[in-house]
Design a binder for these strands. Structure first.
Lengths: 187, 187
DNA sequence: ATGTTCGTACAGAATTTATTTTACAAACTG
DNA sequence: CAGTTTGTAAAATAAATTCTGTACGAACAT
């Protein structure tokens, strides 16, 4: 009755196993600030061993080509996907960045790095302003409040200094000196 | 013409400086998966040196008390805010967790930790499934595909093992052995 | 040129997420 | 006990995000 051969069923089972992984990726990719549907796109590309075109993605996910275009772009932004070229192929081709360490580190240097830089700047400015106010303050209560705020901002700046060092340790790979990669068979 | 004393203007200037910081926090708190308006709530509490009630928050932000209730809850979830008590006060009181290192580390052990655990489990299951398929596979092309997928999943599992170690180094504070806190005047 | 194909900008539709309003249960007050 | 106050659930509304369809310019092909 079954119209499929044994081997065909195995291919189907492989699809099921892949689907399990894709679902897991899609569920948690929001940590990278990417919508789940685009996580699914990433997962699909992850198992697709050839570079994919926007049309192929559109077919594979049943979504519009426009969505694939913007989706791929956001994956490119966080370097989870790369553009490739191939002789005589006119369409844009994309492959996933398979090294998940790199993706993780890049997330930090981009999203977190930008936030750190911005907040550090703003907090420094605020600190400056508060120091200026302190110069002119006479009211004792005001002066106390200003001191408390300064202490907070100094703590915050220290924290950002530390975070920057962490991000740098990611970027340079120095973090592996402290937390080595689990050695696979082939170091 | 100005109805304010010099000192009153200084208080206003302080508000401006604080507003600068609050805005910076609100802008970037999405990295913690929290909406910007609730980041503003956090910032407000950060500078409010006394514990706050939901009604005070509501007044301070011009938002509904219900929003404050759910907002505070999400900040509690990620341990950026704590509940406190005070003799003879009936209302719930909340203060911010001022140690930003702790907040950062907690983000990892909660949000990232949960994601790691989930993905690791699903990927292990998928790997198992694929190994089972491999046993039954005869088609050479299928077998090659299965091998490639297995290699990918093994790499992924290694990555998660490493990530777990990183999270643990955060949780235990061991990370400071590698990246020491910038020493303030008072160690 | 002329006609295709390809990628994306843009405007609107669909969906999801945030916020408020209303309502109510639990804990207190007198 | 009747009357408040407090926090939150649930439903309704508002706002933001994601997705789609159309349209168009750029690159290529003939």
């Amino acid at each position: 009755m079954s119209g499929q051969s044994n081997q065909e069923k195995l291919w189907e089972k492989l699809e099921e196993a892949r689907e399990r992984v894709i679902r897991a990726i899609a569920t948690n990719i929001d940590l990278y600030g990417v919508p789940s549907s685009i996580g699914r796109l990433y997962g699909t590309m992850y198992f697709h061993d050839e570079p994919m075109t926007l049309d192929e993605m559109s077919d594979a996910l049943g979504m519009s080509k426009t969505s694939m275009s913007t989706g791929v772009r956001s994956l490119l932004d966080i370097k989870m996907v790369q553009k490739t070229y191939r002789k005589g192929v006119r369409k844009d081709l994309y492959i996933v960045e398979e090294d998940w360490y790199q993706s993780f580190f890049h997330l930090f240097s981009s999203k977190w790095g930008r936030a750190i830089q911005h907040n550090e700047k703003e907090i420094s400015l605020a600190k400056q302003q508060i120091e200026d106010i302190y110069q002119q303050a006479e009211d004792e209560e005001l002066k106390e409040t200003l001191s408390r705020d300064l202490a907070k901002l100094e703590h915050a700046l220290e924290y950002y200094t530390w975070l920057k060092k962490l991000v740098k340790a990611f970027e340079t790979g120095e973090i592996f000196e402290f937390i080595p990669k689990p050695s696979s068979r082939n170091p």
